[in-house]
Nucleic acid binder design. Structure first.
Length: 732
DNA sequence: GAGAGTGATATGCCT
DNA sequence: TATCACTCTC
């Protein structure tokens, strides 16, 4: 045990060895958060306070979960396989599979990823003849997910105008459709699981008694539903160990609620709040800058990072005339760093928005510097992979209409849109899935669709006793996908990806240690999933896989600031530090938005270990137009003593109105004004009062005339979409 | 059913 | 600018 606790600093040690009570660990960037979390688990187990089965540890990403498992295996001579360590969604999936009957789901229910969900919604709107101009599928998706993440079903959502009423109706219809098809979207996994536990007392009590210790990573990113879920599992007796950093909450835009931290302290009567403030990552100047910047935020839980290392180098700042010049400078600096012995992979180039990467890539490419861009399409999201998975899904659950619609005519087999529509009508008439509606088809379309169904059934029959990789291989051939891509000009890469899918299946079987003969004890760690195929399909949906194959190469790392969270690099460049870009213009109208941008900047700064560079440009090509930006206000929030301006710092503006050398309004502001005004007379950013929701700020306007709708942030009441024709708004 | 042509549209991206 | 989704034409 002593070995386990070696090299922990005082607060880390205190956190790890806390008594079995709920605790909140405020863990600053680079303060050894993961270490504390895993050591805590190891310590609890090693001292006999809990068995491995009594621990529940939750993370947001698969990567974090894996990291935790790896470290734990290194600390303890136990098999971590059966432990309940995983992502929120992964654990919910596990619970729902185990208790699918109580959850009113078929055992083989499929998981819809974001894409699948959108196509399911489009299909729904079509079948109900809904005008998707007026009710854009994307908005509906956002609406549904937003509600579910608050823990709300359609009937619980507040109706305040006709437009919104329709959304609620469509939400209900969507859920019915999913139920009929036996599919769950991501938030549904959480909500379904929550409802299962809250409805089923014996089950709830079983798990409450079982999980004596619940540990949560990145607690600041939990949404209200996840918090309720945790609360339910914890019951009155479990100890909840929540680790988070309110200053690194950068996903409020996605429904995360930092307020959960305060609520947690209150509701769990947390006696133990421990701050981890010693940073082992960065030098003093970098930390100092981060601390000074974030101090501008209000409503912080409060925390100041410090380091035992020296000040280190100053933060270098470069001002370019154009984005291309900025990129050129970046290339030169990177060259210098590489000359000084830095690995390319130790260098990160961060930006606020993906669109900024192009200029930088161009410059790096021309300079012959290898780089790797993160983001973009991931393995399991590629079209050919999704096609193959759709066949597999149909074999597993024939009523999965999303999968059916995806491949019924892919590769093309003479089944046109008319036939599919006809089938959809029949399915609706008889209240069945597309697959089950096929026998009702008569005449010519019946034969080709009938052949498709026969093909699926043949696949199911022929693969019955095959191991998973061979099943995958079989359907790639039997579906005609392989032949189809062989005939395509650029099909080679797709074929390689399909082969990679077979490899992924092989790896899945060996890595996950999936055992078909595992004992099926209800509510036990060893939960029997219907088949390796079903497990693999869940895996594919829950873990989208890496974005790029060329991983191993030593390359400069390029990514958005969001994507950089949790990572660290020796040298970090933060580019595009301009007003409107960083902070992003869509955020600066609301105070909360601006604070989130500041946290984002905080995250960006704290990624750097030894060298930090900030750059901005006077002009930038964006969306095909040259935009003239101002230096980001965040520069004014950094301590001057830590900065070194590579270009002269020009006092050319302030953020008050009373300036200066710039006679006219900066173009970026002009452009913003233009964008924001609307023929309805309202404009984005305007403060309004609503009879029911009180004061809010218009964040978006869409449509025109009687169709015009405004999206308003009512703060406490959340984001609402209101029809201008209906809602009574008053300007403030 | 495939390809060309059109137009709109443009943060962040975990599960 | 560049991408994507959707319509139109053969």
């Amino acid at each position: 045990m002593s070995q386990l606790l070696q090299h922990l600093n005082e607060p880390q040690l205190a956190a790890v060895t806390l008594p079995p009570q709920s605790a909140l660990i405020l863990a600053g960037a680079g303060s050894g958060k993961t270490r504390v979390l895993t050591t805590r688990i190891a310590w609890l187990i090693q001292t006999g306070q809990v068995s491995p089965q009594g621990v529940l540890a939750v993370t947001f990403t698969n990567k974090a979960a894996k990291e935790m498992l790896t470290r734990l295996s290194a600390m303890l001579p136990i098999n971590t396989r059966g432990m309940w360590i995983g992502t929120f969604h992964g654990l919910c999936n596990r619970l729902l599979r185990a208790h699918h009957r109580d959850a009113m789901l078929p055992q083989t229910f499929q998981i819809l990823d974001t894409q699948d969900q959108l196509s399911a919604i489009k299909r729904l709107l079509k079948s109900l003849n809904v005008d998707d101009e007026k009710y854009p599928p994307k908005n509906l998706q956002y609406f549904i997910n937003g509600a579910k993440e608050q823990g709300l079903r359609a009937h619980q959502v507040e109706v305040y105008d006709d437009y919104n009423r329709r959304f609620v109706e469509l939400f209900a219809a969507y859920d019915e459709q999913c139920q009929r098809e036996g599919v769950c979207d991501f938030p549904e996994l959480m909500l379904r699981c929550y409802e299962l536990l809250s409805r089923n007392q014996p089950l709830r009590e079983h798990y409450q008694a079982r999980f004596k210790h619940i540990l949560v990573d990145e607690f600041q990113d939990t949404n209200p539903l996840q918090y309720q879920w945790l609360k339910l599992l914890a019951g009155n007796h479990s100890a909840m160990f929540a680790v988070g950093d309110d200053d690194q909450s950068i996903y409020a835009f996605r429904g995360a609620n930092v307020g959960n931290m305060a609520q947690f302290e209150r509701e769990f009567k947390v006696q133990n709040r421990i701050k981890l403030e010693q940073n082992y990552r960065s030098f003093g100047n970098i930390l100092n800058a981060a601390n000074t910047l974030i101090a501008n935020n209000s409503k912080r839980l409060g925390k100041n990072l410090w380091t035992a290392q020296g000040e280190g180098e100053p933060i270098r700042i470069y001002e370019a005339m154009q984005d291309t010049q900025e990129a050129q400078w970046l290339v030169e600096e990177i060259r210098g760093l590489i000359r000084d012995g830095f690995n390319r992979s130790d260098i990160a180039c961060l930006y606020r928005a993906n669109a900024q990467s192009r200029v930088l890539e161009h410059a790096l490419f021309n300079a012959g510097i290898p780089y790797r861009v993160y983001g973009g399409l991931r393995f399991f999201e590629r079209a050919e992979i999704k096609h193959a998975l759709a066949y597999l899904r149909l074999m597993e659950n024939a009523h999965d209409d999303t999968a059916f619609a995806r491949v019924v005519n892919f590769p093309t087999r003479g089944i046109g849109a008319r036939s599919v529509e006809q089938l959809q009508d029949l399915a609706k008439q008889h209240g069945t899935s597309l697959y089950a509606a096929v026998p009702y088809l008569t005449g010519k379309p019946g034969s080709s669709i009938g052949a498709f169904v026969k093909m699926i059934e043949a696949m199911r029959f022929e693969t019955q006793n095959l191991p998973l990789p061979e099943i995958v291989e079989h359907i790639i051939h039997a579906s005609g996908l392989l032949t189809h891509y062989q005939g395509e000009k650029e099909g080679q890469e797709r074929i390689e990806n399909l082969n990679e899918l077979v490899n992924a299946a092989t790896a899945f079987i060996s890595e996950e240690g999936y055992r078909m003969d595992a004992p099926a004890t209800l509510g036990d760690a060893e939960i029997q999933i219907a088949s390796p195929l079903a497990a693999f399909l869940s895996h594919a949906a829950l873990e989208a896989g890496d974005n790029q194959a060329q991983a191993g190469m030593d390359a400069v790392q390029m990514m958005t600031v969001h994507a950089a969270k949790g990572l660290e690099f020796h040298a970090v460049f933060i580019t595009g530090m301009e007003e409107g870009l960083f902070p992003h213009e869509n955020s600066i109208t609301e105070e909360d938005g601006l604070q989130e941008e500041r946290r984002l900047m905080y995250v960006a700064i704290t990624r750097a270990r030894t060298k930090l560079y900030l750059s901005f440009s006077q002009s930038r090509m964006l969306h095909g137009q040259t935009r003239y930006g101002l230096r980001s206000r965040f520069f004014d929030e950094l301590p001057e003593a830590t900065l070194k301006w590579l270009t002269p710092k020009v006092q050319r503006y302030t953020h008050s109105h009373s300036s200066s050398a710039w006679d006219e309004l900066p173009p970026v502001v002009e452009a913003y004004r233009k964008k924001a005004s609307h023929d309805s007379g309202w404009r984005i950013g305007q403060s309004v009062v609503h009879a029911k929701f009180g004061e809010g700020v218009i964040v978006n306007i869409e449509g025109s005339g009687t169709d015009a709708r405004v999206q308003i942030n009512f703060g406490r009441h959340g984001l609402k979409l209101l029809s201008l024709a209906v809602a009574k708004l008053e300007a403030v």
